[in-house]
C-alpha cells in the first residue's frame, strides 16, 4: 500500500493538547512542513510563548526555548545573535504578542532582527478562558467584555502586520488564514517565504495567521470557520504587506 498522507517528520509523535476544532494543529503542521521542505528543520530553534501555544516546544522536533509572557521576540533576539546560522522562530498568540509583548515585538522588527514570527491571531485569550484580547473585534463578546467590546470603553483592535510593515527593519509581513483549504495552502506559502527571508538574512519576518477558538467563541468548529471569514477577515484583510524586492 502506498502512503498517501502521513505525519510530518517536523513534529514529534504525540497528542496535541489543543481543543477539538482548534486551528493551531493545522498551523503547527504548516510550520513543520515548511521547515522540513526547506531543509531547515534540524537547524530550527522554536521560541514558545505563553498562552495556548505554551507547549509548542514539545511538538516541534527541534531545539526550543519556553519564553515568559510576551518576551519571545527578545528571547529570539538573544538566541539568534549567538546562533547566527540557525533558523530562529517564535510561535505566539495575539494576547502574548499584541498586548504584553508589544514592545518586544515592535523593537525586534525595528532592529530588523533576522528572526521569524509565527503570529496566531484568534481575537481572544484562549488558555485563560476567553478574556478580551488586544485583537478582539468591536462588539465581540469575551469574559471580560461580556456585553461585547465597546470601542468607547475598550478601544480598537490592533492590526499587527499593518503596524509592523511601517518599520524599515521589517522585511516580510503577510496575513493569512486557515479557514478553508485554499487559504491553508496560501498560508503555507507565506510561512515558507518568511523562513526563506530569514535564510537570506533579509531581516525581520512575520506571518499573521487568523485562527479560530471554538471553545471560547462558543461556536462549533464549522461555525467558527464561518465566523472567522465573515467577521475577522473584513477587519484583518488578508494579503502581503511587505516583501523584500527580488534581485
Amino acid at each position: 500500500m502506498s502512503i498517501v498522507f502521513e505525519r510530518t517528520r517536523g513534529m514529534v509523535d504525540m497528542p496535541l493538547h489543543y481543543c477539538p476544532g482548534c486551528t493551531h494543529g493545522i498551523i503547527h503542521r504548516l510550520v513543520a512542513e515548511s521547515l522540513v521542505e526547506l531543509g531547515l528543520m534540524d537547524d530550527a530553534v522554536c521560541v514558545s510563548s505563553v498562552g495556548c501555544s505554551v507547549f509548542t516546544y514539545n511538538y516541534f522536533d527541534c531545539d526550543a526555548y519556553q519564553a515568559s509572557h510576551g518576551r519571545a521576540a527578545a528571547v529570539a533576539t538573544g538566541s539568534k545573535r549567538v546562533l547566527k546560522d540557525r533558523t530562529v522562530f517564535t510561535y505566539q498568540g495575539d494576547g502574548d504578542l499584541a498586548a504584553i509583548g508589544t514592545a518586544e515585538t515592535v523593537h525586534a522588527a525595528a532592529r530588523g532582527e533576522n528572526v521569524t514570527i509565527i503570529y496566531v491571531n484568534n481575537a481572544i485569550y484562549g488558555m485563560t478562558g476567553g478574556q478580551m484580547a488586544p485583537t478582539t473585534l468591536v462588539g465581540q463578546k469575551a469574559t471580560t467584555s461580556p456585553n461585547g467590546r465597546s470601542a468607547e470603553l475598550q478601544g480598537y483592535p490592533i492590526r499587527v502586520c499593518e503596524m509592523l510593515s511601517t518599520l524599515d527593519g521589517t522585511a516580510f509581513a503577510e496575513r493569512v488564514s486557515v479557514h478553508n483549504p485554499a487559504n491553508v495552502r496560501k498560508a503555507k506559502k507565506a510561512i515558507k517565504k518568511a523562513f526563506e527571508v530569514q535564510t537570506a538574512k533579509q531581516g525581520f519576518s512575520i506571518v499573521e495567521i487568523l485562527s479560530t477558538c471554538s471553545t471560547n467563541w462558543g461556536l462549533n468548529p464549522t461555525d467558527s470557520l464561518k465566523w472567522l471569514e465573515d467577521n475577522m477577515i473584513p477587519y484583518y484583510p488578508l494579503g502581503n504587506f511587505k516583501t523584500p524586492e527580488e534581485n
Binding site: 526555548y65 515568559s68 518576551r71 527578545a74 529570539a76 538573544g78 538566541s79 545573535r81 546562533l83 518586544e104
Partner: peptide, 26 residues
C-alpha cells in the same frame, strides 16, 4: 562580542535568557 541596546530592561534580560540558553557568556 556583541553589544545590543534593548527596548527596556525587560527586553534586555530576556535577550540574556536567549543568549545564555545558547551557551554564551552574557
Amino acid at each position: 562580542g556583541t553589544y545590543l541596546q534593548a527596548e527596556s530592561e525587560i527586553g534586555a534580560i530576556n535577550m540574556v535568557f536567549g543568549a545564555a540558553g545558547a551557551g554564551a557568556r552574557v
